[in-house]
Amino acid sequence: MFFGKLKKAHGKVIINPNWCKGCGYCVKYCPTDVLEMSKGYNAKGYHPPQVKAAADCRDCKFCELICPEFAIYVTSDKEEEQASASA
């Protein structure tokens, strides 16, 4: 898209639906709006979140931090991670 080697940081969101209690914090507080609540139910009868815009994840791990049930975490995507720091 651009000249230069600048790459966005990228993370992969992993959700453990069965631990989720459907509080929606991760959906509400994600700064890049990666998540949404799913229509489906988990074993406990809650709507867990699902990823709607995987490419927008900037690996900030705020969802991981804010989740009261430890049901979501992010792994850094090494391939996509910024190759160079020459900004």
């Binding site: 898209m1 651009f2 000249f3 230069g4 600048l6 790459k7 966005k8 940081a9 900037r58 690996d59 900030c60 900004a87």
Partner: peptide, 17 residues
């Protein structure tokens, strides 16, 4: 900085953080 957006000083030819 994890974010890259178009750099308006380069008329969006490059990105910036």
């Amino acid at each position: 900085c994890p974010v890259v957006v178009p750099n308006e000083y380069d008329l969006n030819l490059t990105g910036r953080r």
